[in-house]
């Protein structure tokens, strides 16, 4: 086990290094990208361009520039935005993380509960109209662009039905920190949570249903029935438990992707100042250091989360550990 963990950690470090190199190359070594021109404004003086180049280390050779960038990102943490030099990139990301976490965590709770419920209902009612109906609903959920769904939700809850008893409680778009006012935090996030979870409810319900139907023919399920267990017990204690293996591993990946920046569209539509919104705001001005930093943050988060999932898995299931 220790060997496996060490090997996995060495692999992790190699991937993290490769991620920083690739991101750096995309942003600062693509031929034709010259950030200094963008920084210096229109018709810049050569001296101004040179000064900016020196300030950001753009006049150094490529490997040195990489090292300088990584030092400013991880060691001194004083990388500043190109557009707004008062914006320190690393603190901006750290202060945006709780927002993204709040959004994704709540959505995850909703999608796990509702998708298990939907998947179970579809299997219980297999052969009736309920099963195909639920699966079509799930497919529609998968087919909706989340930002559009968010806009429709805004239209309904903020405007068209806002003055009715249904949605008069919905606060204007924005975010209140959990520590400042837990109730407002909750109210502000309900609609974003529901919007973000729709896609995953549909997807997970379909995966779970397929898995449940797969294991329905397994010997141990037949044995459980033969022992005289109630149908409910067979479904919940035997079939659901095995089916959850795929479910949990998918969940680990998706949760990582969302916290790592995958929730950008939801954050933009609902004006939640998370990491995704930070990326979006710098997209408008094509602010390379901020975008690079958020991309590295996202890829790091996902890679580390995956490594943790692998290690936990190896702990639970010895067959995964290589000999």
């Amino acid at each position: 086990m220790a060997v496996f963990v060490i090997r996995r950690l060495i692999g992790l470090i190699a991937v993290l290094f490769a991620i920083t190199v690739m991101t750096f190359l995309i942003f600062f070594a693509t031929p034709g990208v010259d950030p200094s021109r963008q920084l210096a404004g229109r018709n810049p003086q050569p001296a101004v361009v040179a000064a900016i180049k020196h300030q950001f280390g753009l006049d150094r050779p490529l490997p040195i520039r990489y090292l300088l960038m990584m030092k400013r990102l991880f060691v001194s943490r004083d990388l500043v935005s190109y557009g707004n030099q008062a914006l320190k990139v690393v603190p901006a990301i750290t202060s945006a993380t709780p927002v993204t976490f709040s959004l994704v965590f709540g959505a995850a709770v909703i999608w796990v509960v509702l998708s298990i419920l939907t998947g179970l209902l579809a299997v219980v009612f297999k052969g009736t109209i309920v099963d195909p109906l639920l699966m079509i609903l799930a497919l529609i959920g998968i087919s909706m662009p989340v930002f559009w769904l968010g806009e429709v939700a805004n239209l309904i809850t903020q405007d068209r039905l806002h003055n009715t008893f249904l949605f008069h409680w919905v606060p204007p778009n924005g975010y209140t920190p959990l520590t400042a006012n837990p109730w407002q935090w909750f109210l502000h996030l309900i609609i974003p949570w529901l919007t973000l979870s729709v896609l995953y409810i549909g997807f997970y319900a379909r995966v779970l249903r397929a898995n449940l139907l797969d294991v329905a023919n397994e010997d141990y399920v037949r044995t459980a029935r033969a022992k005289g267990l109630s149908e409910r017990r067979v479904l919940l204690k035997h079939m659901l438990r095995t089916s959850m293996i795929t479910f949990v591993s998918l969940f680990g990946l998706d949760f990582g992707v969302l916290v790592g920046g995958g929730a950008i569209l939801t954050e933009v539509v609902f004006g939640l100042p998370g990491v995704g919104k930070l990326t979006y705001d710098s997209l408008v001005s094509l602010d390379l250091p901020v975008i690079m930093a958020t991309v590295i943050y996202g890829a790091f988060f996902i890679t580390i989360a995956n490594a943790l999932v692998d290690i936990v898995y190896a702990r639970l299931d010895p067959r995964i550990r290589p000999a």
Partner: peptide, 14 residues
């Protein structure tokens, strides 16, 4: 290893 949207965003920005 990159999230799909973030990689696409990086390439598009550049």
């Amino acid at each position: 290893a990159f999230p799909v949207y973030l990689l696409a965003i990086s390439l598009a920005t550049v």
